[in-house]
């Protein structure tokens, strides 16, 4: 509208408005070009506006990419010596599970059966009698290992103990919460030359098989066994 020519001859401009416009112009140019050198080359500025911001955003993006990758590499602690950072988190998890289990143990000792919860996602039904709880075996229930992320999501190993026996291992995967459960007692074993091997109970005390990295440890059956031991208050 202001671009249109005035239909009638112009009135003299109000000095107050004149002052305001001048103020605005001053503010505008001050904001646009803080450096006097830049003000001398308005043409160049118009051809390549926001050049500094563009360069800055590109640089920031590149640095962030590399930095994040470094953080991921560091936090996953894939291998090498001195994986102490993960040790503390593992300890912390063990400590929290141990506390929950300690309460579960207490209740189990005082009454004949009780219910406890190890994690928010999984209910632990410690329907054990006082005798089994004190006999030094792992309290019945479901134990969840530490979460571990990989290319396909985040997984947690979950071990189910019943009557002191490891009866089931489930892999919880996030975010879809899909449970790929395999009943290990019914597990089809690989074809074997030695016919003596048949389907057998896989209730084991420990697992042999190189877990080279701390990350792969969290995905292993051994970590679930350790979680169960710690949580049973046997430690």
């Amino acid at each position: 509208m202001s671009n249109l020519p005035p239909p009638t001859p112009r009135k003299p401009i109000d000095p107050l408005i004149q002052q305001r416009v001048a103020n605005l112009r001053r503010n505008q140019s001050a904001a646009e070009a803080p450096a006097p050198a830049a003000r001398q080359k308005p043409v160049g500025r118009r051809v390549k506006p926001a050049r500094a911001s563009k360069v800055a955003s590109l640089a920031l993006s590149a640095i962030t990419t590399v930095g994040l990758a470094g953080v991921f590499a560091h936090s996953s602690q894939a291998e090498g010596a001195g994986t102490l950072t993960l040790a503390t988190t593992a300890d912390a998890t063990a400590a929290t599970t141990a506390t929950t289990a300690a309460t579960a143990g207490d209740t189990a000792a005082s009454s004949t059966d009780s219910t406890a919860t190890t994690t928010a996602t999984v209910d632990t039904t410690a329907a054990t009698t006082a005798t089994t709880a004190t006999s030094g075996q792992i309290a019945d229930g479901t134990y969840v290992g530490q979460a571990s992320s990989n290319r396909w999501g985040t997984v947690q190993v979950q071990a189910v103990y019943s009557g002191g026996q490891l009866v089931d291992v489930q892999i919880l995967s996030y975010p879809d919460g899909d449970r790929k459960s395999v009943q290990i007692n019914q597990r089809a074993l690989p074809t074997l030359i030695d016919e003596a091997i048949t389907a057998q109970s896989a209730d084991v005390d420990t697992v042999s098989g190189a877990t080279y990295t701390s990350r792969s440890y969290t995905e292993s059956l051994q970590s679930a066994i350790d979680a169960a031991l710690a949580a049973s208050g046997l430690a």
Binding site: T65, G67, A69, E79
Partner: peptide
């Protein structure tokens, strides 16, 4: 001596996150 594919994975994640931030910024 991390495997090459591990670094690919870390970089895949970080470029993805940066792309997301850029998209929102845009």
């Amino acid at each position: 001596m991390r495997a090459m594919s591990e670094w690919m994975w870390y970089l895949t994640r970080s470029t993805g996150i940066v792309a997301a931030v850029l998209a929102v910024a845009s």
